[in-house]
Nucleic acid binder design. Structure first.
Length: 563
RNA sequence: CGCGAGGUAGAGCAGUGGUAGCUCGUCGGGCUCAUAACCCGAAGGUCGCAGGUUCGAGUCCUGCCCUCGCUACCA
């Protein structure tokens, strides 16, 4: 294991709130990973921020009669706050509208330009003279030349499925103003991805064949096999970072050029605020750079951004890009436009203090190898049958027994029986497994093993039946309770990355905040809580979720769905 | 159409050549410390379909079907 990690989570685009798909695919796994590494004593920079440029924001502002700034301010605050209350432990959450990001992006652009990396290419593009801007293909509609559908988009006809170019449409119309677009000449800067095919081939196709996820590797290979082409990194738009060179008036950096640079500028901002040097986090070969993203972002994080980093010369490349697939909701695709989603900010209000339930459900059903489905039924059963019945119940049993038999003071034991030793060893082995699953980005597997610790604890109590022995063999009972308490403390440690709020509660119930236990203690080489230690009274860790709550959520979804 | 990923018990998943497994649900039993929670046991699968390689295939090869995604200005 390296000692320094730069962990990035995809920058959320500030034209809407965060939903469970974002959480399951990106933010929860990234957070588990970051928290785990901190527990292992690593130097971690967990970096994110709001992505605030691009056509979509400019358009949304226009449609809502607002300025882009108003749009991004609104969503930045909403997203930032909901991440914060959800316990996503970013070391820094920045914004791409900040000066430090403008400076960093322009520097990188200028640097690449100076190194003659870009190609300047002139081409004809559709221009809307009423809205005074060039039109992305998607913002042109017209008659499909193939099937005569009257509402074909500039990039594709959804009726017959043909791929089109906006210039092929019959009677093209701008969706901005309704006017007929004209062809107009414009110059842009292109990143010649094709010139870097060898680099990507050596680095990913040969170098990461066995350690990257199959879906990620396959996707990259598919792009390479199809041949890379130069890609424009500038746009004609009035919302974005100005292209910082002469002869580029009115042009801005393409949002996908500046967004990943946001990881770097956010790291700089964090380093400045903490009086440390940002460069080792992006330039030291010993640093592991890990990008957490959804599958829609694979090409940007595995091809375009690495080419930018590589071309500029001094940056390290990502060690891994554990992209996840998508999460569906009740059998249908999550859709912002159809309002088919569970929004984080609403969840936080409707299920107060139940962040860990959602974190657990999304982890145990994470779309790691294929698209998965989130259902409210599963949410309820995972909470009630696993968190409440297995995890919460185990802790409750131990705490109640300790208070009942020993007034909450951990009993003394003289020796430990081999059968107890065996359980303790088992728990240590499971803890180790949890760690290695996390290191392999198998968070679902890790969460199963987390629950396995509580399961093992319950089984131990059921087999030993201390409540039957308390009168005739009190010495044995003290050994059993002592052992069960050690298991509880271990559970507290390994829960932190997954269930940070529960972790805190559990520390307080066991009254072990001051022991400063770390992940290494979870391997159970030594006892975790000493005899004579006073624990607190029982407190429920998880609340049962009633049928009516689930029914209400389902109704809410269906009633608010837009068609 | 091309490319990528996936198709394994009612549901969600694991399993890359050697007697099909885990969690939830269902059914039966045990326990009563515990949020009617916990523990044990059982039922339930022609591993998408059809061929092939092999002593032996969920696992390798070929073809087909279905789902999702990508296809370069939807960020």
């Amino acid at each position: 294991m390296s000692k320094r990690y730069t962990i990035t989570a995809a920058l959320p685009y500030t034209n809407g709130p965060i939903h469970i798909g974002h959480l399951a695919g990106v933010y929860v796994p990234a957070d588990i990973y970051a928290r785990y590494l901190r527990n292992r004593g690593k130097d971690v920079a967990f970096i994110c921020g709001s992505d605030e440029h691009g056509v979509a924001i400019a358009l949304k502002a226009k449609m809502e009669n607002k300025t882009p700034q108003q749009i991004i301010d609104y969503y930045d605050e909403l997203i930032r706050n909901s991440f914060n209350s959800f316990g996503i432990s970013f070391d820094n959450y920045s914004r791409t509208s900040r000066k430090i990001h403008y400076d960093t992006s322009q520097e990188i652009f200028k640097d690449l330009n100076k190194k003659n990396i870009f190609q300047e290419i002139e081409s004809e593009q559709l221009y809307d003279s009423e809205a005074k801007q060039f039109l992305a293909d998607r913002y042109v509609i017209g008659i499909c030349p193939i099937c005569q559908n009257t509402e074909a988009y500039g990039d594709q006809c959804e009726s017959c499925g043909s791929s089109l170019s906006a210039t092929e449409l019959i009677n093209p119309q701008s969706t901005l103003s309704g006017s007929k677009p004209k062809m107009r000449n414009t110059k842009h800067w292109y990143l010649p991805l094709d010139k870097f095919e060898n680099f990507i081939n050596e680095w990913i196709i040969k170098g990461h064949k066995s350690d990257w996820k199959q879906n990620v590797y396959g996707q990259v290979k598919s792009w390479i096999d199809n041949g890379l082409k130069p890609r424009a990194v500038t746009r004609d738009l009035d919302w974005g970072i100005p292209v910082p060179i002469d002869g580029a008036k009115g042009k801005v950096l393409y949002v996908w050029f500046d967004a990943p640079i946001g990881y770097i500028s956010s790291t700089k901002e964090w380093a400045n605020n903490n009086g440390i040097d940002w460069e080792p986090y992006w330039k030291d070969k010993e640093t592991k750079l890990i990008h957490f993203i959804g599958k829609d972002n694979i090409v940007f994080h595995c091809i375009i951004f690495p080419i930018m980093l590589h071309a500029s010369g001094s940056f390290i490349l990502p060690k891994n890009v554990p992209a996840n697939e998508f999460l569906n909701l009740e059998g249908e695709k999550i859709s912002t436009s159809k309002n088919w989603a569970v929004w984080l900010h609403e969840y936080l209000e409707e299920f107060p203090n139940q962040q860990d339930t959602l974190r657990y459900v999304l982890t145990s059903n994470a779309p790691e190898t294929k698209d998965n489905d989130f259902t409210w039924d599963e949410f309820q059963s995972r909470n009630n049958n696993e968190l409440v019945a297995i995890y919460g119940n185990f802790i409750n049993r131990v705490v109640v027994l300790t208070n009942k038999y020993y007034d909450g003071i951990i009993p003394k034991i003289e020796t430990r029986l081999p059968e107890d030793e065996k359980i303790i060893d088992q728990i240590g082995i499971i803890s180790k497994k949890i760690g290695s699953s996390i290191e392999k980005y198998k968070f679902r597997e890790a969460s199963q093993n987390l629950m396995q610790i509580a399961r093992t604890g319950n089984k131990y109590l059921a087999e030993k039946e201390p409540w039957k022995l308390i009168d005739k063999d009190p010495k044995r009972v003290s050994e059993i309770i002592y052992t069960a308490l050690q298991i509880s403390a271990c559970l507290a440690i390994v829960s932190e990355p997954f269930l940070p709020f529960t972790h805190e509660k559990l520390l307080s119930i066991l009254n072990i905040e001051s022991l400063k236990l770390s992940w290494n203690d979870a391997f159970m080489k030594n006892d975790l809580i000493p005899s004579g230690h006073q624990i607190s009274k029982a407190m429920l860790l998880f609340k049962k979720i009633e049928d009516i709550e689930i029914e209400n959520q389902r109704l809410k979804l269906v009633n608010n769905k837009k068609i």
